[in-house]
Protein backbone atom coordinates (compact mmCIF):
# COMPACT_ATOMS: atom_id res chain seq x y z
CA UNK A 1 0.00 0.00 0.00
CA UNK A 2 2.68 2.43 1.06
CA UNK A 3 4.72 1.13 -1.83
CA UNK A 4 1.98 1.90 -4.37
CA UNK A 5 1.81 5.40 -3.03
CA UNK A 6 5.54 5.71 -3.40
CA UNK A 7 5.39 4.46 -6.95
CA UNK A 8 2.75 7.03 -7.78
CA UNK A 9 4.81 9.79 -6.18
CA UNK A 10 7.92 8.73 -8.06
CA UNK A 11 5.99 8.59 -11.34
CA UNK A 12 5.59 12.36 -11.26
CA UNK A 13 8.84 12.98 -13.20
CA UNK A 14 7.67 10.53 -15.86
CA UNK A 15 4.30 12.23 -16.19
CA UNK A 16 5.86 15.67 -16.41
CA UNK A 17 8.23 14.39 -19.04
CA UNK A 18 5.40 12.98 -21.12
CA UNK A 19 3.52 16.28 -20.96
CA UNK A 20 6.65 18.07 -22.16
CA UNK A 21 7.01 15.55 -24.99
CA UNK A 22 3.44 16.19 -26.08
CA UNK A 23 4.20 19.86 -26.54
CA UNK A 24 7.55 19.15 -28.17
CA UNK A 25 5.77 16.93 -30.66
CA UNK A 26 3.18 19.58 -31.45
CA UNK A 27 5.93 22.15 -31.65
CA UNK A 28 7.69 20.21 -34.38
CA UNK A 29 4.89 21.04 -36.76
CA UNK A 30 4.45 24.71 -36.01
CA UNK A 31 6.82 27.34 -37.25
CA UNK A 32 8.00 29.30 -34.20
CA UNK A 33 8.68 32.29 -36.39
CA UNK A 34 5.09 32.76 -37.52
CA UNK A 35 3.55 35.30 -35.23
CA UNK A 36 -0.10 36.10 -34.73
CA UNK A 37 -0.91 39.70 -35.38
CA UNK A 38 -1.34 41.89 -32.33
CA UNK A 39 -4.10 43.78 -34.16
CA UNK A 40 -6.67 41.03 -34.48
CA UNK A 41 -10.08 42.39 -33.50
CA UNK A 42 -8.92 45.95 -34.00
CA UNK A 43 -9.62 48.37 -36.85
CA UNK A 44 -6.94 49.10 -39.40
CA UNK A 45 -4.78 51.92 -37.94
CA UNK A 46 -5.16 55.48 -39.22
CA UNK A 47 -2.89 56.46 -42.10
CA UNK A 48 -2.56 58.64 -45.18
CA UNK A 49 -0.72 57.10 -48.10
CA UNK A 50 -0.31 57.90 -51.76
CA UNK A 51 -1.56 55.81 -54.62
CA UNK A 52 1.24 53.88 -56.25
CA UNK A 53 0.46 55.16 -59.74
CA UNK A 54 -0.55 58.67 -58.83
CA UNK A 55 1.31 60.81 -56.31
CA UNK A 56 -1.58 63.21 -55.99
CA UNK A 57 -4.12 60.61 -55.04
CA UNK A 58 -4.27 59.92 -51.29
CA UNK A 59 -6.05 57.29 -49.25
CA UNK A 60 -6.88 56.84 -45.59
CA UNK A 61 -8.28 54.06 -43.38
CA UNK A 62 -11.85 54.62 -44.61
CA UNK A 63 -11.09 52.57 -47.75
CA UNK A 64 -11.21 49.43 -45.62
CA UNK A 65 -14.84 49.90 -44.65
CA UNK A 66 -17.92 48.72 -46.49
CA UNK A 67 -16.89 45.29 -47.71
CA UNK A 68 -14.68 42.45 -46.64
CA UNK A 69 -11.28 42.35 -48.30
CA UNK A 70 -7.67 41.29 -48.19
CA UNK A 71 -4.76 43.62 -47.59
CA UNK A 72 -1.64 42.23 -49.21
CA UNK A 73 1.76 43.58 -48.18
CA UNK A 74 4.39 43.12 -50.88
CA UNK A 75 7.61 44.47 -52.33
CA UNK A 76 9.73 43.95 -55.42
CA UNK A 77 12.75 42.98 -53.27
CA UNK A 78 10.81 40.04 -51.89
CA UNK A 79 11.22 36.79 -53.83
CA UNK A 80 8.29 35.08 -52.12
CA UNK A 81 6.02 37.91 -53.27
CA UNK A 82 6.95 37.05 -56.82
CA UNK A 83 5.98 33.46 -56.16
CA UNK A 84 2.57 34.37 -54.79
CA UNK A 85 1.69 37.03 -57.35
CA UNK A 86 0.12 34.63 -59.80
CA UNK A 87 -2.21 33.29 -57.18
CA UNK A 88 -3.23 36.82 -56.18
CA UNK A 89 -4.30 37.38 -59.76
CA UNK A 90 -6.36 34.21 -59.57
CA UNK A 91 -8.01 35.41 -56.38
CA UNK A 92 -8.74 38.77 -58.01
CA UNK A 93 -10.31 36.80 -60.84
CA UNK A 94 -12.66 35.18 -58.32
CA UNK A 95 -13.98 38.63 -57.40
CA UNK A 96 -12.07 38.88 -54.17
CA UNK A 97 -11.35 42.49 -53.31
CA UNK A 98 -7.64 42.91 -52.64
CA UNK A 99 -5.89 46.05 -51.55
CA UNK A 100 -2.15 46.05 -52.15
CA UNK A 101 0.39 47.78 -49.98
CA UNK A 102 3.78 48.21 -51.55
CA UNK A 103 6.15 48.14 -48.60
CA UNK A 104 9.52 49.95 -48.42
CA UNK A 105 10.11 49.88 -52.12
CA UNK A 106 10.70 52.08 -55.15
CA UNK A 107 7.71 53.43 -57.01
CA UNK A 108 9.15 52.84 -60.49
CA UNK A 109 10.07 49.24 -59.86
CA UNK A 110 6.71 48.57 -58.27
CA UNK A 111 4.78 50.01 -61.22
CA UNK A 112 6.83 47.98 -63.66
CA UNK A 113 6.15 44.82 -61.60
CA UNK A 114 2.41 45.50 -61.65
CA UNK A 115 2.35 46.22 -65.38
CA UNK A 116 4.43 43.17 -66.26
CA UNK A 117 2.75 40.67 -63.95
CA UNK A 118 -0.78 42.09 -64.07
CA UNK A 119 -2.25 44.08 -61.23
CA UNK A 120 -4.55 42.11 -58.88
CA UNK A 121 -5.17 45.07 -56.57
CA UNK A 122 -8.28 47.27 -56.55
CA UNK A 123 -6.30 49.91 -54.71
CA UNK A 124 -2.52 50.09 -54.46
CA UNK A 125 -1.02 51.92 -51.50
CA UNK A 126 2.56 53.11 -51.59
CA UNK A 127 4.20 52.82 -48.15
CA UNK A 128 7.72 53.94 -48.92
CA UNK A 129 8.92 54.47 -45.37
CA UNK A 130 7.05 51.53 -43.92
CA UNK A 131 4.90 53.78 -41.71
CA UNK A 132 1.67 51.83 -42.09
CA UNK A 133 3.79 48.68 -42.08
CA UNK A 134 5.08 49.60 -38.63
CA UNK A 135 1.58 50.31 -37.34
CA UNK A 136 0.35 47.01 -38.74
CA UNK A 137 3.25 45.17 -37.16
CA UNK A 138 4.52 43.91 -40.50
CA UNK A 139 7.74 41.97 -39.94
CA UNK A 140 8.35 40.51 -43.36
CA UNK A 141 6.79 40.51 -46.78
CA UNK A 142 4.52 39.02 -47.94
CA UNK A 143 1.81 39.29 -45.35
CA UNK A 144 -1.92 39.25 -45.97
CA UNK A 145 -4.48 40.75 -43.63
CA UNK A 146 -8.12 39.63 -43.64
CA UNK A 147 -10.34 42.63 -43.01
CA UNK A 148 -14.09 42.48 -42.53
CA UNK A 149 -16.66 44.98 -43.81
CA UNK A 150 -16.41 47.05 -40.62
CA UNK A 151 -12.71 47.53 -41.22
CA UNK A 152 -11.73 45.17 -38.40
CA UNK A 153 -8.66 42.93 -38.86
CA UNK A 154 -9.69 39.30 -38.40
CA UNK A 155 -6.57 37.39 -39.36
CA UNK A 156 -3.06 37.75 -40.66
CA UNK A 157 -1.34 35.27 -42.88
CA UNK A 158 2.47 35.40 -42.97
CA UNK A 159 4.24 34.02 -46.03
CA UNK A 160 2.98 33.37 -49.50
CA UNK A 161 -0.62 32.70 -50.44
CA UNK A 162 -1.05 29.68 -52.64
CA UNK A 163 -3.83 27.39 -53.78
CA UNK A 164 -3.08 24.74 -51.16
CA UNK A 165 -3.11 27.03 -48.13
CA UNK A 166 -6.10 28.92 -49.49
CA UNK A 167 -8.18 25.80 -49.92
CA UNK A 168 -7.04 24.16 -46.70
CA UNK A 169 -7.55 27.01 -44.29
CA UNK A 170 -8.00 30.47 -45.63
CA UNK A 171 -11.00 30.18 -47.98
CA UNK A 172 -13.21 29.09 -45.13
CA UNK A 173 -11.96 31.95 -43.03
CA UNK A 174 -12.57 34.45 -45.79
CA UNK A 175 -16.04 33.16 -46.59
CA UNK A 176 -16.96 33.16 -42.92
CA UNK A 177 -16.08 36.83 -42.57
CA UNK A 178 -18.90 39.40 -42.54
Amino acid sequence: MANTRKIIALSVPLLLFLVVCFFLFKGLYTDPRKLDSALIGQPVPEFTLQDIYDENKQYDASIFKGKKMLLNVWATWCPTCYAEHKFLNQLAGQDIYIVGMNYKDERKKAIRWLTDLKDPYKISLFDKDGMLGMDLGVYGAPETFFIDSKGIIQYRHVGDLNARIWEDELAELYNGMQ
Partner: peptide, 17 residues
Protein backbone atom coordinates in the same frame (compact mmCIF):
# COMPACT_ATOMS: atom_id res chain seq x y z
CA UNK B 1 13.99 10.76 -26.17
CA UNK B 2 10.68 9.14 -25.30
CA UNK B 3 12.23 5.70 -25.50
CA UNK B 4 15.32 6.48 -23.43
CA UNK B 5 14.12 9.08 -20.96
CA UNK B 6 10.59 7.74 -20.69
CA UNK B 7 11.92 4.22 -20.24
CA UNK B 8 14.38 5.20 -17.57
CA UNK B 9 11.86 7.30 -15.67
CA UNK B 10 9.46 4.38 -15.78
CA UNK B 11 12.16 2.09 -14.46
CA UNK B 12 12.83 4.69 -11.80
CA UNK B 13 9.18 4.88 -10.73
CA UNK B 14 9.01 1.11 -10.38
CA UNK B 15 12.41 0.40 -8.82
CA UNK B 16 13.24 3.46 -6.74
CA UNK B 17 10.59 2.80 -4.04
Amino acid sequence: LILIIGGSLLLYAVQAP
